[in-house]
Design a protein around this nucleic acid. Sequence first.
DNA 1: CCTTGAACCTATAGTTACTAGAGGTTTTAT
DNA 2: ATAAAACCTCTAGTAACTATAGGTTCAAGG
Lengths: 137, 137
Amino acid sequence: MNSSHFTIGQLAKKANCKVETVHYYEKSGLMPEPPRTEGGHRIYALPHIKRLSFIRRCRELGFSIEQIKELLKFIDEPGHCCGEVKSMAVLHSRDIQQKIEDLKRLQTGLNEMVRHCKDAGDSIDECPIIEALYVKD
Amino acid sequence: MNSSHFTIGQLAKKANCKVETVHYYEKSGLMPEPPRTEGGHRIYALPHIKRLSFIRRCRELGFSIEQIKELLKFIDEPGHCCGEVKSMAVLHSRDIQQKIEDLKRLQTGLNEMVRHCKDAGDSIDECPIIEALYVKD
DNA sequence: CCTTGAACCTATAGTTACTAGAGGTTTTAT
DNA sequence: ATAAAACCTCTAGTAACTATAGGTTCAAGG
């Protein structure tokens, strides 16, 4: 294996993910099927590292596999423009904002219940959290 | 079906979830197996409604199925105290706080990239988002 | 009573994004 | 040559549902 070629393990390590994840991305269509050795081992090169690192960074940002597919299409195919990428990023940013707000609402509700709890001693029958959640209907 | 008994569809509706979800909770051990009609249909009563509603409220608060199992154990078995419930709620609240912070970090990173985008016109080669994510390694 | 449609039943498979394990082959280092 | 590490494909599992298929039961209306 010459120095401008990499095994799947090396690729995975450089992009900070597992070998199985690379298999998964190949099967999902994110990563191209690479050339192989005579023995059947995958041969990767620098462009693969760049692509996988891109995918990993997008995943870290919370983009779904499908969204990353679209982004990769923008990159792979001619004729796309930055505005399309920006649109996706803006929509995604809104999703994240919505999730933050949802979690904050949860947090508030939960903390409100915790606030009414004494530190110890009460039995379950007198627990404000259980009382709040196990109400009559 | 007399008026203090409910079908699974009625139960699901009252607790705001689907019939399949009730099946799932029964299989997961959250809901007890109820008595049946001669024909094999499940017969539910008020305590089932209360229990399922509790489960749904916990799910809405983001508790996992396993966590809800524990909470239900506190309720079902004698000798537990409110402090145990409070502990779980406090730990869970911390989880949620961590998620909020993670999402905010994502949000910040994403918005920073979006901020450098002009509205349109640039090709993908000049897209600051792609440039940031598809870097050399 | 009969018919029909709705609701029920169980079992299985799919969703998303991985992750693990099994059993076998290839490569590498000693 | 040998042993261990790394590779391969395939399958199944994770969490929390959700959908589908094929069959049975129930309820309402004629």
